[in-house]
């Protein structure tokens, strides 16, 4: 915890002149804003630990502003802000299990499943006879995300996407 915000340590370098004061030069990421800053501490100094932990939760619905998640074991429901959901909004559908990072019980960030199956809502029909999928084309998915897909994939089909890099993996039979 620094200045009231939770941070995660990205890098921690020990700096000490042979005959002098020891420091730790630390690069930390603000878990609320994602911003990385550098801070120097005297070695051995302690900082309040942030009550941050990860848990698996099911995405229920989005009412236009807030995103609702449920703990599948306790059925307890939590609301995540648009900021906390961030990029995950591009990939998640109702019922998906997401990794939710909680700070003092409030969702700080949402990580979508590594792979999701989504329906293509719009893509160019492509050139007749081309089945190789060499070049690819953009396709809009039901969540609004746009990914590059092979030419043979058509509107209405389900595809599997890797959310970590936003790349098409394969066609899918069902979600």
């Amino acid at each position: 915890m620094l200045d009231g915000d939770p941070y995660t340590i990205v890098e921690n370098e020990f700096v000490k002149p042979g005959k002098g004061q020891a420091f730790n030069r630390v690069r930390v990421r603000n878990l609320k804003t994602g911003r990385v800053v550098e801070k120097t501490f005297k070695s051995g100094e302690s900082v309040e630990a942030a009550d941050v932990h990860d848990t698996e939760m099911q995405y229920l619905y989005n009412d236009g502003i807030e995103w609702n998640f449920m703990d599948p074991d306790t059925f307890e429901q939590l609301i995540a802000s648009e900021q906390a959901v961030g990029e995950a909004a591009k990939w998640i559908k109702e019922q998906d299990l997401c990794k939710v990072t909680l700070w003092n019980g409030v969702p700080l960030s949402i990580e979508p499943p590594n792979f999701v199956v989504l329906e293509i809502t719009d893509t160019d029909p492509g050139l007749k006879g081309d089945t190789s999928g060499g070049g690819g084309k953009p396709a809009t998915l039901e969540t609004g995300a746009v990914v590059r897909v092979p030419l043979f994939v058509q509107t209405g089909e389900l595809i599997k996407v890797d959310t970590r890099n936003g790349e098409y993996v394969s066609r899918a039979k069902e979600a």
Partner: peptide, 22 residues
């Protein structure tokens, strides 16, 4: 631009060590 200066409590040599090492 040394980060976290506001939180550091150092004596004179401590500040010199900080500037030298950083």
């Amino acid at each position: 631009g040394i980060g976290g200066v506001e939180g550091l409590d150092l004596d004179r040599d401590g500040w010199l060590d900080l500037l030298l090492s950083h």
